[in-house]
Design a protein around this nucleic acid. Sequence first.
DNA 1: GGCGTAAGCAAGTAACTACTTGCACCATGG
DNA 2: CCATGGTGCAAGTAGTTACTTGCTTACGCC
Lengths: 204, 204
Amino acid sequence: MDNRDRILNAAQKVYAQHGFRGATTRLIAIEAGVNEVTLFRTFGSKAALFEALMQSYAARSPISPLPDNPIDPEREMTDWCASVLRHLRENRALIRTSFGEIEERPEAAVSMCEGPNCAGTILTDYVLRLKSMGVAAIDGDVPTAVAMLMSALFGDAISRDVRPAGFPQPESEAPSKYVRVFMRALGVKPARLRVPMSQSVAGD
Amino acid sequence: MDNRDRILNAAQKVYAQHGFRGATTRLIAIEAGVNEVTLFRTFGSKAALFEALMQSYAARSPISPLPDNPIDPEREMTDWCASVLRHLRENRALIRTSFGEIEERPEAAVSMCEGPNCAGTILTDYVLRLKSMGVAAIDGDVPTAVAMLMSALFGDAISRDVRPAGFPQPESEAPSKYVRVFMRALGVKPARLRVPMSQSVAGD
DNA sequence: GGCGTAAGCAAGTAACTACTTGCACCATGG
DNA sequence: CCATGGTGCAAGTAGTTACTTGCTTACGCC
């Protein structure tokens, strides 16, 4: 890893902890293990460094897909939610910090939002696919339910550690519980389809 | 309004926009219309000013109640959600900023969370009352559904302006849609009870 | 060996920040 | 009438920040 990447990584870490103003070039340089002058020689200015940071972040944010051919909606959505939640949790300091500075520097938060926005679309498309492909019957308010599920993941990721009382489920069980409530709200019922038998067919 | 209150109001406004580091004593004094020295004479230091701020905020955060004797669950919850959402929206800059600085100054965010925490309890109690008083049948996962509804309100308040794509409903209709999804998830069905034919019940 | 390039180091600059000091002003009230 | 307390104003202090400059060192390449 060259100096440029080392500085970018350090900047992300320091920024997530201290915000833009608190992320001094000195702190970043120390965290990166390079001389402060190298930072300026590489990026020109602190502002330019953060522009590069946002670009590099947007480029490497992984968004998990949902299967094109749904088979087991509950399991597929639970796995997907767990993966999205994990990603949000890992980046929660960064997300919170960038959201906190929306008023002064909106670009950072907008970069952070590309992922969740995309995830919302993926989930909506998946649910509509469930319906159109006859995998499940659905008759609820899809856009609202999707918005609520995404907000649940987002809220869980960024406020569970601050406000544990609001999240009674343990972290590990949260995705499956959210998905079950979500499916119930949409009236998801397996249509005529062979359900994999290993998972006891639990007709509720 | 005396100088003390004027400074506190100014500090809240400037802090919400610029964060702790960005809320310089100079900016606050200008916003309050007082001399910077007055600020130090009144509070002693910037840190002490912000301590006072947090206390005064916690003291004056209004939390709407839900009726002790539920009559029309959907309407009561919709009104309540609308009021909670309005409050969160009005304070969204403050909430976002304090959340953004959790890593450095957790107290601020904790103060902000008292309201939502309390609101979650109020809603949970209300739903349990619906059930125990026989106003409605309920058979879903109450804690999870409540967490999701609260996250929906929270997420709507703080990310709608940054990420409009995630909130397809117009602001005015959001509370009623959230509540409808919420009720559906809980399987809320009016129990044997005279349901008001028109809205002219004039109960409250 | 010579040479260009990337990096470190020490020092400095101008702007800003929290906070202080000293003094003048002014309304109140005994 | 004068003391007192709250306020404004001008100036200053010490620390920090982004950014610069000048010099030195080390490494790869011809």
